[in-house]
Design a protein around this nucleic acid. Sequence first.
DNA 1: CGATTTCCATAACGGCTGGTATATAAGTTA
DNA 2: TAACTTATATACCAGCCGTTATGGAAATCG
Lengths: 203, 203
Amino acid sequence: MEIEAATAPKGRPREFCVDAALAAALRVFWSKGYEGSSMADLTEAMGITKPSLYAAFGNKEALFNKALDLYELEKTDYMRAALDAPTARGVAERLMHGALDMYSCPENPGGCLGVINSVACGAEAECIREAVVARSAAAKQAMLERFTRAKAEGDFPDDVDPAGLAAFLTAMNQGMAVQAGAGATRAELERLVETGLKLWPGR
Amino acid sequence: MEIEAATAPKGRPREFCVDAALAAALRVFWSKGYEGSSMADLTEAMGITKPSLYAAFGNKEALFNKALDLYELEKTDYMRAALDAPTARGVAERLMHGALDMYSCPENPGGCLGVINSVACGAEAECIREAVVARSAAAKQAMLERFTRAKAEGDFPDDVDPAGLAAFLTAMNQGMAVQAGAGATRAELERLVETGLKLWPGR
DNA sequence: CGATTTCCATAACGGCTGGTATATAAGTTA
DNA sequence: TAACTTATATACCAGCCGTTATGGAAATCG
């Protein structure tokens, strides 16, 4: 019956924290990409051995997908929050500033996990790529819907279309990610954001 | 003495065309990235065996650098041409349309060789990454100088700075590359370019 | 012609890849 | 205590990685 949380894990309890290990794995994937991260890199960073990793997470691909879930959960929630801004300009501001904070946070690896793993890869990582691309497509779709509403509400002129604006904002985010991954300083990214917002239509 | 071109290659002549093989190698690197391209992939696409490859090009890294030279030479010369446009807006137009044509040409692999290999990689490909990043930094620097001149010539308002504009255009290019690599259609990229040019300051 | 030089093809190298089989340690339940 | 269940540690697997040694084929030079 056991309605309460399972208080009796029958066998020997594991000696490591699954969440902490997953967070460590995320950092590795984030800085080296899926293909560039070897199992040796991962186990060393996670502080566990290979059998423990396989028992807890399945395999490398499953581990990546769980790391991707974690990434979306705690690293890109600024995106969801941004879409709640009252105006299209507010959305753009929150989105760019959120990206800026994330990409220039010294505790994070440079760049964006999604961009890193969606550009190109060998044959065996193709399914990873597809998974990542699908997620970013969903994000772009949400932006498109938000801007369609914004246009109906008169947030920007008639001669700019919502799809173009969504693609534009996505491109700015991706460009920031690439430049951050290439070693751009926070000041440089700030200039980029400032320029992008200066060019943003309306207000 | 031999002032004329060497007409007497002493030993057995090679049976393949070096330029064609290099072009084939470029396509592989361009679609799979440096790490994702195995020697087997390369030799198969180039139609030669591994010893021939090593004799003609050195090793994988040297082959990549030569492919990168070829890429810059014949795939990104639109960038150099763009900087010669009479106005900053002309530069932006040529740059974006040039990128659009290249990224949506069905004969090319999707994406940008530079972006693909500058985002992240394992330890052994770090030197490749640095080489690619250095080149794109040079391109950005050329753009910065062009826009500094443009500002002096009054091509755009005082409240936008040349560095920001260079970073912005670079970001647009990188965003297009990422989206093209993720499977965006030409129509989608056209919308992105159109929007970007609509937001461009002045005129 | 013979000698020399270079290229091609086969096959192998050590090392690393992601993934496991086996044995032992560390807990719980009875 | 004995029986059971699960985690850990070591060692290992087949397969691929980039790279190279070896042996023979094809050209020019003397």
